[in-house]
Design a protein around this nucleic acid. Structure first.
Length: 746
DNA sequence: GAGCACTGC
């Protein structure tokens, strides 16, 4: 056996050991330990142990920088800890180098005892861009081509090869893989990065890995977090050892207001102008909660800045939020405006942003941060089954993250628009994990597919409210994804394979029976992307007119289909621009549609259409919609435009963005939005007969409370009896007459 | 007659 552990993997007697064919797959693997010195030697050596090619000069240059990172000081300590424990918790603040270095250390430690050819190290990230950019950087650091030994895997893009042993990927992607491989058997080590963000996928992966680890003693798990809640992770992972690495950022001086600010928007604007007039050079970053607020603030700041004396430099306000076209988002990287005169005072830019600048986007040159202490957060109300966005106070961790944005390039200042005592006493330590704030229908379906039988006692780091789990189970049972015993049905199994909400998956799966799977594919894709209709403030009328071209009188789902078809005949940005349509959203919809289509083909679900000339073309589509969304139905009550949701009895209005040509008695909706009032958005007319036919259990009239909805259903049932024999024909006739009357009545 | 925090499959 070679003395060099990094050449040992070439020896056939080792490579062959523990092959997964036959016998227990994870027994008998050779586990040779390495230490920090050996790794250091391998890093400095002339041969790259991963490729057996000589190290390039560029590699050596980058290596010098790597050795300057704080985390490098603790490489030996990490490797020792990693090899002696199945779980390791690692805390490294911004600038520690953990995301790029730790996975490489793991690769050096796992390589000498490569237990099976093809075994990989996975490092998860909450965001796609991070997975891609970090993989690129690490490929450079390791002197390999991206996609060969080091790669990444995100939705729509798999940049890996059979040679890949270090793979950066989104957490959601690893979760998807786990659904087909419950043991995650292709990985020797899984590293969960940014675990403090507590995304839905990371939380589920943590519970899952804890479970898998029992059956795979060879599997190692590293959990990396940026904040100081490490004890919680340690406790959760059986008292795992902890490694702390200091960060490397510049100091940020934090200021609080002496008194609470009654109007944070006004205070934020005032603070920006104050900084601009009184503080030294450097750009400003302001955190606000949403698009409207941000545009408003930009206008006001620009106005105020124009009124300042010329002894003060120019100030340019730049908005930043996710629905902004990429071209406009790029403006945050523009230089600050030039002085008004060659020897005048320097200009300054102020970026007014949502939370997107907290983690997803980094702007260099920010020296001042203004933090009013709020963000929009999702909350779920299981009682009425509604998710909504609420402006809420941020957590201490989030405030710290925001402040850190001022210290990336040099020492900075952070102005918090709340009192120090509020910060200490009122703010939560951590932001509530997502799993406690959302509808769990897809999560519960996924867990079942992951082989978790006892959903209530699954080892959640923070268990969701039992009522939320119950709501999810109930929904899945009505959709026939779970049987009455809570077991996954074949339909549920099929549903779980689609990256869609259960309702959307259901309508897609039944769509071939209604001869409209091609169309439902398009609708499902359109519903999976952000709102495709653009409506700039200055051109609302034009935008509304453009949107009206696609409107279908029977509903917004059908309008989305029209829009998709129109785009397919003109799939270019010019056409989108001219029609007030988001090109980005349409491209995304195309991507999603292709992915869903591939799944349909794999599952042997037919891709079919009803002939467009056939008068049942649109009805077939609406019937398929009904099969997925019968729990999202509202009934018009009284003569007014008010609707009441079925079963939950919430009073709602049609969202003004709807394109219906009247107020139909029964509608199904895609989402319930809670803003100034309750609205149902993306709405399509539905026939009550379909509800009774396709969701007989849910629409069992006996279970309805006395009220208008129940009486209406009873009328439908009686009507159905009378006209039996020519059922659908009779309905068609009535519907047409009714519509005609509604129109003429205006 | 009003809005879309941010991610992810």
């Amino acid at each position: 056996m070679s003395d060099n552990p990094y050449l040992a993997h070439l020896e056939p007697h080792q490579r062959g050991t523990g092959s997964s064919e036959g016998g227990a797959p994870f027994d008998g693997w050779i586990a040779r330990k390495v230490d920090g010195k050996q790794v250091e030697k391998a890093m400095d050596g002339t041969t790259n142990p991963f490729t057996l090619r000589p190290h390039s000069k560029r590699y050596m240059d980058i290596l010098k920088l790597r050795k300057n990172l704080p985390v490098h000081q603790q490489m030996s300590e990490f490797i020792e800890m990693f090899q002696s424990s199945q779980f390791t918790v690692m805390v490294g603040e911004t600038g520690s180098g953990k995301t790029t270095q730790i996975p490489q250390y793991v690769a050096y430690a796992d390589l000498p005892h490569l237990r099976r050819p093809g075994l990989q190290v996975a490092c998860t990230q909450p965001r796609r861009v991070a997975a891609m950019s970090v993989a690129k950087r690490v490929a450079d650091e390791m002197d390999v081509s991206l996609g060969d030994e080091v790669g990444y895997s995100i939705r729509f893009e798999d940049c890996t090869s059979p040679k890949t042993f270090l793979k950066y990927m989104t957490d959601g992607m690893l979760l998807r893989e786990a659904m087909n491989d419950h043991m995650l058997s292709r990985y020797s080590t899984v590293i969960l990065d940014e675990a403090h963000e507590r995304t839905l996928a990371t939380d589920i992966l943590m519970g899952l890995l804890k479970d898998i680890a029992k059956r795979r003693p060879d599997l190692k798990i590293v959990v990396m977090s940026a904040t100081l809640d490490a004890a919680k992770f340690q406790n959760y992972f059986f008292g795992a050892p902890l490694l702390k690495v200091p960060g490397r950022t510049f100091s940020v001086e934090v200021f609080y207001t002496p008194e609470p600010e009654p109007d944070y928007l006004e205070a934020a604007i005032r603070t920006v102008l104050m900084i601009h007039q009184a503080e030294g050079e450097g750009d400003i970053l302001v955190f606000l909660t949403g698009e409207e607020e941000i545009e408003d603030a930009c206008r006001k700041i620009s106005m105020e800045a124009d009124n300042l004396p010329h002894s003060i430099g120019p100030l340019r306000a730049i908005p930043l939020y996710s629905s902004l076209p990429p071209q406009q988002q790029q403006k945050i990287f523009d230089k600050a405006p030039a002085p008004r005169t060659p020897d005048g005072p320097p200009g300054r830019k102020v970026v007014i942003s949502t939370n997107i600048a907290e983690t997803s986007l980094t702007i260099d040159g920010i020296v001042y941060v203004v933090d009013p202490g709020f963000s929009k957060q999702k909350i779920y109300n299981p009682r009425i089954r509604v998710e909504s966005l609420l402006v809420s106070p941020i957590s201490k961790a989030s405030a710290q993250q925001r402040a850190g944005r001022a210290g990336r390039t040099r020492p900075g200042k952070c102005f918090r628009l709340y009192t120090e005592s509020d910060f200490v006493k009122e703010l939560e330590e951590q932001t509530y994990p997502e799993i406690l704030r959302c509808n769990l229908a897809s999560v519960i379906l996924e867990l079942k597919k992951l082989g978790i039988d006892d959903l209530v006692h699954f080892d959640y780091m923070d268990p969701p409210a039992p009522e939320t789990v119950m709501r999810a189970l109930e929904l899945l049972n009505y959709l026939a994804a779970f049987d009455d015993e809570g077991n996954l049905t074949p339909l549920g199994d099929l549903m779980s394979t689609f990256p869609l909400e259960p309702q959307l998956a259901k309508m897609l799966i039944v769509s071939p029976e209604f001869k409209c799977s091609n169309e439902i594919l398009s609708i499902a894709a359109m519903l999976s992307v952000p709102n495709p209709y653009l409506r700039p403030n200055s051109q609302r009328k034009e935008a509304d007119e453009a949107k009206a071209q696609f409107a279908h009188p029977h509903g917004d789902h059908l309008s989305l289909l029209n829009l998709y078809h129109a785009y397919r005949t003109n799939p270019d940005s010019q056409w989108c621009w001219a029609n007030y349509v988001s090109f980005r959203a349409m491209q995304q919809a195309d991507n999603v549609r292709n992915q869903l289509k591939r799944s349909m083909e794999k599952m042997d679900l037919d891709l079919v259409s009803t002939a467009f000339e056939d008068k049942s073309y649109y009805d077939n589509i609406r019937r398929a919609l009904t099969c997925g969304f019968f729990m999202h139905v509202a009934h018009r009550e009284g003569d007014k435009n008010g609707y009441t949701t079925v079963k939950d009895n919430q009073i709602v209005g049609l969202h003004p963005s709807n394109g219906l040509d009247n107020n139909p008695e029964w509608v199904l909706y895609n989402e319930f939005v809670l803003t100034t009032r309750n609205f149902i958005r993306t709405v399509t007319e539905v026939r009550p007969e379909w509800l009774l036919e396709y969701a007989a259990d849910y629409y069992d009239v006996k279970t309805f409370p006395q009220g208008e909805t129940r009486r209406a259903l009873e009328r439908v049932m009686q009507g159905g009896k009378k006209s039996s024999g020519s059922k659908s024909g009779g309905d068609e006739g009535r519907e047409r007459k009714k519509r005609k009357k509604d129109k003429s009545g205006r």
